[in-house]
Structure formats: structure tokens, C-alpha cells
């Protein structure tokens, strides 16, 4: 870095005394400080929270504002264009006259829940397994590589069909299945990063100090791959939301009439010429969610990099 040779202004004695009394800072407290001052990231956080609140309050909104349930049909009003009268057709109606806006609210529940929970499972399993394998190497790593390669060599579609046959499809099952199947990419990535990091001198220095393996993994290796993990997580959640809609075709996951952003989007493509608004609304929601996740991932990455100063 070009900043490495920058000279540091030595504060006056009074300033120094004040500085010495400050509580010790850490990567996390600094990151939080920087995040709070990063408007774009905070905006993205806000949008995601708004989406989550809208979905969580779907019952409330549909009863009190739209007076419509998500499975209610109105065959006299199919393919309605977006209109304020009645409010239920705010975003139009679909091929059997259901309210698009209400279905979108309920769809958010499934999509956000599946996306976030499954990604959390993916990340937890993937990071834990990948870092451990990369750090331990030897037998542990051989076993890991064997398992992941085997899992990856079975076409996912067959695995999912097997799951669909064994379990009753539903959002919960879907989350578990996606969570337990899609961690391999993340874990391979973490393993590779750990391989490189464990040979770095600061990790050897930690060993010389007498740090235990767990400490080295949590304090030295993890913080150095975390920024990349955030970016991966953002990609992961977006991919899961779309995967969920593909899985509905197989009878695994969300079955009609329960809506999800994914199946709203895939259903609507059939009627694209007659009712383009049915495609646009779930598409925009998925797009905004993924965009916000990228922005947050990016913001977190910057916040966790001590070399980047917060703009004051």
C-alpha cells in the first residue's frame, strides 16, 4: 500500500493522555462505526428491512388494506392492469383474478425466509467445514475433498427428486434441502483461502505465541476471509431465491397456490404478452433484494478493511 510509509502526526501531550484513556478498539467496533457512516449501505439495509416487515405483516395488510386473501379468485377480473380501484389490484391481477400485490407480500415471506435461512445454513456449514479442512489439511482435508467431490458429482436434480420423494414438500423442507446441498461451493472457496492464509507469517506468528488452533482459525484466518464471504453470501441468497422457483416445478418446495417471488415470476412468463406487469413486480422485488445484498456485502467488505478510512 502506498500509505505504508505515511508519517503519523504525533499529537500533543494532552491529546495523547486523552487517547490513552480511550477504550481499546477492535476490528468490529471500527467496522460498525464505518458502517453507520456509509449511507448507501445503510439505505440497502433499510430497504431489506422494509421488505422483511412488509412480508411479515402480509396478513395485516391483506386484511385491512386490500381486503383480499392470496388464494382468492375473481374470474370476472382476470388480467387486470394495475389500478388503485380496487386497491387489491394495485399491481394488477393474474390469470384467475388473484391480487398480485397480496400474492407478492406473501411471496416475500417464502422467498426471503428460504433465501436467508438457507444461505445462513450454507454459510455456517460451508465456512466451518472449508476453514477446518483447509487449516487441518492431511486426512481431514482428504475426507472433505472426497465428500464434496462425491456430492458434486451427483446431479443436483436427482438428489432433489430423491428428497421430494422422501419428504413432503414445503418451505421448511426446501430450506433444509437447499441449505444442506449448496454449501460445497462456499466451502471449497474457504478451503482455498485458508490454504493460502495458513502459510502467511502472521499465522505462524500466532502459533509461535502459543495460540490454539481454534483461536488461529477464528481470530486470524476468519477475519481475513470474511469480506469475501459477505460477497459470496449476497450472491448465494440471490441464487437461492431463483433456485426455489425452479424447484417448484419438480414438486419440491412451494406448491401452488402458495406464492413465492420465484413461482410468481415463472408463472407470469407464460402470460408475458398479455400481462407484462405480472412479470415486472416479482422481478423488481428479486432484483432489489439482490441489489441490496450486493451493496451490503460491498459495504461490509469496506467496513472490515482497516486500510479504508471512514469518510468524515
Amino acid at each position: 500500500m502506498a500509505t505504508s510509509t505515511a508519517t503519523i502526526r504525533v499529537p500533543t501531550a494532552a491529546e495523547q493522555a486523552a487517547i490513552l484513556l480511550r477504550p481499546p478498539r477492535s476490528l468490529w467496533s471500527n467496522a460498525w462505526y464505518k458502517l453507520r457512516h456509509d449511507r448507501l449501505t445503510m439505505l440497502a439495509f433499510g430497504v431489506l428491512i422494509l421488505f422483511a416487515l412488509l412480508s411479515a405483516g402480509a396478513d395485516l395488510f391483506s386484511q385491512n388494506i386490500f381486503h383480499y386473501t392470496f388464494e382468492k379468485q375473481d374470474l370476472l377480473n382476470t388480467y387486470q392492469k394495475p389500478t388503485l380501484d380496487p386497491p387489491a389490484f394495485l399491481l394488477g391481477s393474474d390469470e384467475i383474478g388473484r391480487s398480485q400485490v397480496v400474492r407478492l407480500l406473501y411471496g416475500g415471506r417464502v422467498s426471503l425466509m428460504v433465501g436467508f435461512v438457507a444461505a445462513l445454513v450454507n454459510l455456517t456449514v460451508g465456512v466451518a467445514v472449508g476453514v477446518t479442512a483447509g487449516y487441518m489439511r492431511g486426512r481431514v482435508d482428504d475426507l472433505f475433498t472426497w465428500f464434496v467431490t462425491t456430492l458434486n458429482s451427483i446431479p443436483t436434480i436427482f438428489l432433489l427428486l430423491i428428497f421430494a420423494a422422501i419428504w413432503e414438500p414445503g418451505p421448511g423442507q426446501l430450506t433444509v434441502v437447499i441449505g444442506l446441498l449448496f454449501w460445497t461451493g462456499i466451502s471449497l472457496f474457504c478451503r482455498g483461502q485458508t490454504f493460502a492464509l495458513r502459510e502467511r507469517e502472521f499465522v505462524i506468528a500466532a502459533k509461535t505465541i502459543g495460540a490454539r488452533d481454534a483461536r488461529i482459525m477464528f481470530r486470524h484466518i476468519l477475519p481475513n476471509i470474511l469480506p469475501l464471504i459477505f460477497v459470496l453470501a449476497a450472491i448465494d441468497i440471490g441464487a437461492i431465491i431463483l433456485t426455489e422457483s425452479a424447484l417448484s416445478y419438480l414438486g419440491l418446495g412451494i406448491l401452488p397456490p402458495t406464492p413465492s417471488w420465484g413461482n410468481l415470476l415463472t408463472n407470469a412468463t407464460t402470460y408475458f404478452v398479455r400481462a407484462w406487469w405480472l412479470v415486472v413486480s416479482p422481478g423488481v422485488m428479486i432484483f432489489l433484494t439482490v441489489l441490496c445484498l450486493y451493496l451490503i456485502g460491498d459495504g461490509l467488505r469496506d467496513a472490515l478493511d482497516p486500510r479504508l478510512k471512514a469518510e468524515s
Binding site: 505504508s4 481499546p24 478498539r25 477492535s26 476490528l27 502467511r200 507469517e201 502472521f202 505462524i204 506468528a205 500466532a206 481470530r219 486470524h220 477475519p223 481475513n224 472490515l304 478493511d305 482497516p306 486500510r307
Partner: peptide, 13 residues
């Protein structure tokens, strides 16, 4: 250590 740039964890104070 030899390399004072590599032997300090860049993410620790």
C-alpha cells in the same frame, strides 16, 4: 520475523 509487513495481521489493531 523477517517481513514486518507479512508478520502482523492486517485486520488487528
Amino acid at each position: 520475523f523477517q517481513d514486518p509487513y507479512a508478520s502482523l495481521n492486517p485486520r488487528m489493531t
